[in-house]
Design a protein around this nucleic acid. Structure first.
Lengths: 339, 339
DNA sequence: CTGTTAGCGCTTTCAA
DNA sequence: TTGAAAGCGCTAACAG
């Protein structure tokens, strides 16, 4: 029915009248093997479509050529877009990608990390969800020799590399632009407490106002734990406002719904800016302005760093950890351009 | 600096004064090991956070507890949503997920399949992109003992399971609804040639018209290889129309842009229905109607089938192949509901 | 330049 | 009920 017997090194060796070591060396381009032998070996390997057993290799070399990627959810296209980029970059470098998502629960997130560790990936790239106050378990994984690189969110007190959005400047520029356009009463829809991104975006907002000597009105800073809260919170705002900046695009979409329902014109009465530049932004009416987080830069930097860490680890060399901030870009669309 | 030495079976054995075989058996709940021994072994394993080396296991058992998932792109949220579901289902069953995307090129798609085969995954779940006229290489992979299950698109002449959308009925219902609402001149923006989905959606469109004795006007059937062509093709339509059905949501968004630019009112002048129900549909103005493809059903069915195939293969039993059609659901929103 | 040998961590006969 | 030993497929010392 099916042969189902994969060719292995010894099969090649037998057919060629060589030892397995020679064949192995030939395949791995060992310097001291004559070209002719290499050619013959590779030829046959190709003909029989021989593929080395990755488990035998993994067992021996403790390298799996596999990177684990952890993310909270596939629902955010920003994350997915990063995954896509990671996947492309890693494919180029000959790495495979094991992916796992873990949802909002801390317990599941921990488990997901452990599963990756158990799978003996060479390294982990993670978009964490929770503020790991006790990152002991992460340190344990790192101590086992699996470097972890974090994307988008910073976890304090952890020796690791971080590749994050320059949230501060991203929001700063957005608010700065609005002020230049004459808006003064700018709402900020703040994101979930526990995220470093919420914090820095809020700081950017405040600093932009401060730098133009505009007093910060606490009533305009509206914390929303999720996009579901946005409309309700906006209902109960009892001060005037002429612009809204948001933790992310989904908050902005909700805000847009709200404004429409109140017959408040965008951008004439109120300007609106999201964050992340989800592809949807082009399809809302009016089209949504947003802050672009260039995902390909995230992916490239992350891959570069994790591979470097893996190599350093292999050579028992020290690693310098750092926080890398990826510059954003303000994408203006109809929701901001007063006619 | 780092211990970096994972605990292994022999470490447990040594500490317990047992042989590795006994420890192994205890861990695997071998019947002839006394409960007390099992308890002690498991206790220690837990304390030292022992995790069996998956490579040693893989080498021995030829089972990797890993499923490869192949998809053309992460850009389509329909695909991503399926991945998310696969990932959850497979996690429950103790499987890991290796993911790879391959873009539009046939060559890359082939390579991606091969890479998966080389990675010795237990099975492959694929959303193919191309119409593999010569599926020899797929058969080779299947012959190597790796079952492949295809999602969303059918490849003729291949012994495999397929889980696809009931495209025909999905589009049929959409068109049927429009006709009931009094629309008669319904455009169909047809998808890429090579996709079985394009074909069946078109058939559904035609059959709906036919069943209501409406003549099919070829000028209303507009083939578009990609969403980029939509606007341009619509420009040159020179017959009247009062509704548009689309190969997918992105086509519909483009169509919406076009209609807006022409000041054609949606849904008053022209009704618009997409396909896939991307989450964006809720945020366009007017909100986009679409055909829901329940991704969780895809995921569940796919996992069920592939695991069954793996098991049958392991027991050297025959597998019955089939095409499973997942029912769609018409999601009506503003783009269809005349006021 | 090439073959022999040992061993990666685990499971699984085969004996005891 | 348990241990010793072999071996999964491959690579890397160590000899030649």
């Amino acid at each position: 029915m099916k042969p189902n017997r994969r060719v292995k090194l010894s099969d090649l060796a037998k057919q060629l009248g060589l030892s397995t070591s020679t064949v192995s060396r030939a395949l791995n381009d060992h310097p001291k093997i004559p070209h002719e032998t290499k050619r013959r070996v590779k030829q046959l390997a190709n003909d029989l479509s021989y593929h080395p057993n990755p488990f035998a290799k993994g067992l021996l070399q403790k390298k799996t050529k596999t990177i684990g990627v952890l993310l909270p959810s596939f629902k955010m296209s920003f994350f997915v877009s990063i995954i896509e980029c990671l996947q492309q970059e890693l494919k180029l470098k000959g790495y495979k990608l094991i992916v796992s998502s873990f949802g909002p629960s801390l317990k599941e997130e921990k488990e997901a990390f452990w599963e990756m560790a158990k799978a003996h990936v060479d390294g982990i790239i993670a978009i964490p969800n929770n503020d790991h106050e006790d990152p002991t378990f992460l340190n344990n994984i790192i101590d086992e020799g699996i470097p972890i690189l974090f994307i988008d969110r910073i976890i304090d007190s952890l020796d690791a590399n971080f590749v994050v959005t320059d949230d501060f400047n991203g929001m700063f520029e957005a608010v700065d632009y609005l002020i230049d356009k004459g808006r003064r009463k700018i709402i900020h829809l703040e994101g979930p407490d526990e995220l470093s991104t919420s914090f820095f975006r809020l700081q950017g907002y405040k600093e932009a106002l401060r730098s133009k000597q505009i007093e910060i009105d606490k009533r305009l800073i509206i914390p929303c734990q999720s996009k579901e809260e946005v409309i309700q919170k906006l209902q109960s705002v009892d001060v005037e406002f002429d612009a809204i900046t948001c933790f992310n695009d989904y908050y902005a979409f909700e805000a847009l719904q709200f404004l429409k329902s109140k017959n408040i014109r965008v951008p004439d009465d109120v300007c609106l800016i999201g964050f992340s530049d989800e592809p949807i932004c082009q399809y809302t009416t009016p089209q949504m302005s947003s802050v672009i987080q260039p995902t390909s830069l995230f992916g490239k930097k992350a891959v570069e760093l994790i591979l470097h860490e893996i190599q350093q680890l292999q050579n028992n060399k020290a690693i310098d950890f750092d926080i890398y901030k990826i510059k954003t870009q303000l994408q203006l669309r109809q929701s901001c351009l007063s006619v």
